[in-house]
């Protein structure tokens, strides 16, 4: 069984936006889509280290604010011609609260 940590209320994350969680292994971006799905990805573009949490969220993708790489929030995979991926983490919603897998504390990837 995974252990989950209560991080914040869903409404603390803007729709089609993101907020950052600091973890021992670096920053993780919590994304919220237009239809209230939540995803957790490493907040660091593999290209030049851009903060993905500051990208524009469209559908279940985010576009890196620095050079426009697009990542699938489901898989962390870069889309289109770009090659690379960011780590994804387990996150879940319970009654309007956002919970993250305790592996956040150790920085262990869920994928």
């Amino acid at each position: 069984m995974s252990k989950f940590i209560d991080i914040a209320a869903l409404d603390d994350i803007p729709r089609r936006g993101a907020r950052v969680v600091k973890t021992p292994q670096g920053c993780v971006a919590l994304f919220r889509t237009a239809d209230d799905r939540v995803f957790a990805l490493e907040d660091r573009c593999p290209h030049k280290g851009g903060p993905l949490s500051e990208g524009i969220v469209h559908g279940t993708s985010v576009t890196c604010p620095l050079h426009g790489w697009v990542f699938d929030l489901n898989t962390g995979q870069a889309q289109g011609a770009d090659e690379g991926e960011v780590r994804t983490f387990i996150v879940c919603l319970d009654g309007g609260r956002v919970l993250v897998d305790a592996s956040f504390l150790s920085g262990r990837s869920a994928a």
Binding site: I13, V21, K22, T23, P24
Partner: peptide, 9 residues
Amino acid sequence: PIADLTLRA
């Protein structure tokens, strides 16, 4: 940041 887990760890 919305949360800081480095302190918690």
